[in-house]
Design a protein around this nucleic acid. Structure first.
Lengths: 120, 120
DNA sequence: ACTAGGTGCTCTATTTTGTCAAGCACTACA
DNA sequence: TGTAGTGCTTGACAAAATAGAGCACCTAGT
């Protein structure tokens, strides 16, 4: 327990905790999708690359509790909900941008030997 | 499959793939630790917050195969290995920086108890 | 010399986490 | 009328991460 997220006597590092959050499966994908605008539940699941409802539900709940995502129920019975980023959430843009920049520069280099199926 | 990492007919999105990588458990922690300098195996495990050896081993292997981390065996028998970032890996600094900046600004809002200024 | 603890890393068993599929209650479009 | 879409929960299952032991050796303390 070096950076000691919350385990023991360590002084608590916000960066460590953020990483803990961002490394949760789908979180980054969800943020990226939500940065492009509000989404519905299933819609978001698809936009994100096919996350299943159980996980998605849990992740959104987490993000909501942390105040990064805003959930608006537009109608209960013909189910219609809207998920969108809060101000704090929207500022995650810088992180996605950094990933974006890095990815364009370095990621293709790594996966040269990808499935050539569509790699035109 | 919107951003379609590699599943189907989608044109392949490096950003999606990067996110897939970065969201793997411990990866971001590992990168953060490694940005502060080379580490040994167990040392890294501790620096990272207590990842267990099995997982750590796998993650380092992944990072190495992607060319982000360099593994140098300094001595086989008195075991001594050195893991350090490659150039590509070192450029992940920008991402960690972005996370760092965001974390300091918004993460404390979630659990306002910090009193550490590490990770300059 | 001998013990305790450190190095890197793999193996097995167990726990944690994520996924699949079905279902509810209802609307919209064909 | 029927098919497909909406949001989301539950229970059964698969995949991933963990603990912990162990190997083969070195270093420091006593």
């Amino acid at each position: 327990m070096e950076h000691g997220g919350n385990k023991t006597s360590h002084p608590y590092c916000p960066v460590y905790d953020s990483i803990e959050l961002l490394q949760e499966k789908w979180i980054l994908h969800i943020v990226r999708a939500l940065l492009e605008g509000p989404h519905g539940f299933n819609e978001l699941g698809r936009a994100v690359g096919g996350a299943n409802t159980t996980t998605l539900s849990q992740r959104l709940d987490h993000l909501e509790r942390l105040g990064l995502v805003d959930k608006t129920i537009e109608s209960t019975m013909p189910p219609r909900t809207r998920y969108e980023l809060t101000d704090s959430g929207r500022e995650l843009q810088t992180i996605i941008d950094a990933i974006d920049a890095w990815a364009r520069k370095h990621m293709p280099a790594c996966k040269k030997h990808e499935n050539e199926g569509a790699a035109a």
